[in-house]
Design a binder for these strands. Sequence first.
DNA 1: AACACGACCTGGTAGC
DNA 2: TGCTACCAGGTCGTGT
Length: 263
Amino acid sequence: MPELPEVEAVCQKLRRDALGALILRARMLRKRNRALEARVRGRRIRAIERRAKNVLIHLDGDWSLRVHLRMTGNLYVIADARHLPATARAWFELEGHSGLIFDDPRALGVIEIHRTDDLAALLGNLGPEPLSRAFTAETFVSRARQSSTPAKVYLMNQEKVAGLGNIYAAEALHRARIHPARAMNRISSRKLTALHGEIVAVLRHAVKSACRAYSGPGSYNSEENFPVAVYGREGLPCPVCGRGVQRIRQAGRSTYYCPGCQR
DNA sequence: AACACGACCTGGTAGC
DNA sequence: TGCTACCAGGTCGTGT
């Protein structure tokens, strides 16, 4: 479900609610994982960071949890650890009876424990963080020009840009006026540079919206605050030109775009 | 190398 | 109401 902005909101809230907390015990609820349960017991949460759509929870003793929320995952602290949601995947009892919950109705998410030192290799294939200095227009454009992949599919590839998903890839392409099926190496450098800027702008805006809207349990309603132009709006008028938004299928996913604006 | 597709899971909703 | 079909903000492995 969540893309970079929603995962960022999860991390920021988790820092407020769980940083420094001691894990008294853990329980994997769907499928037992005794190694993980034993390894986190008695450790304190020392840092929480996001890398692409992964939540990294660093513990004492150079152990780290990697959580990927995939489509429906969520990670939050509840005041009373006994009140588990029915869809909880994992439960970490913290000091003071509170609980860190990995909630995941569709059970597509991932939770693993690794030596902190091993994370770099594990996540080594991910592309640059789009909100970091490493994501420059120059490197984005030069890499893009070497690929014949359709623009939307390219943007969804985590090895090219880390953290974009179906919504914000579509929105960035709409703002840059690029057709989602256009091969990257057939887009001008000028337009690719514009696309780079729109990726950053869309994500910055969406992070703010997601952080404002997110409150823990429940869904990510960032759409309430982030004004989507095309995503999920098949048949509705494009807010820029008024033409009907179209939906096509790319790599098994729905892509929304405006046939008037995007060429 | 680059792409499409199914698998992984569950739940919500539209249509008959 | 009850059934079916299809949809969903992600990623991986396999096949062409």
